[in-house]
Amino acid sequence: MKSFVGFFGSTAVFAVSICIIYWFSSHDRGGALLLGFMCVALSFAAGYAFFTEKNAALEGDDRDLKHREAAGEDITIVTKESPWPLTLAISIVWFLVGLLWSDFMLFTGLAAMLLCLWRLGAESARVGGETIMTKEGPENFT
């Protein structure tokens, strides 16, 4: 996590320095603004990581931890399958095509997108259907 802060932070410093050099060598507002945005985005990522680092004790960052020492803890939660990403992808495309050529497709697409997002949210809230990893491997949580 420290490396992450370092990489994103130093890239942000780099971005702000070339932004300044660029502004004084070209006086081009477009490019300087883009570099400025880049710096803001990188600083945001680095700052977020910096402030959450204390709370997040990552096993991956523990140099001496062996795999079996992590036993008994939930390693990760994984969804095995979900029909909603495909449905959402179709409705996004439907919506975008509607944006250009058809009001009918626009509104049905919008409705379908909202439906999919709702179902995705509901799926996340439901524990059943998800799988929790334990030391013995995947275990269904029903």
């Binding site: 996590m1 490396s3 992450f4 990581a49 997040a56 990552l58 096993e59 991956g60 960052d61 523990d62 140099r63 001496d64 931890l65 062996k66 795999h67 020492e69 992590a70 990760t76």
Partner: peptide, 12 residues
């Protein structure tokens, strides 16, 4: 890459 590394898999 940042959060799902196995125990012992430091970034370096």
């Amino acid at each position: 890459i940042l959060l799902y590394r196995a125990p012992g898999m430091t970034m370096w």
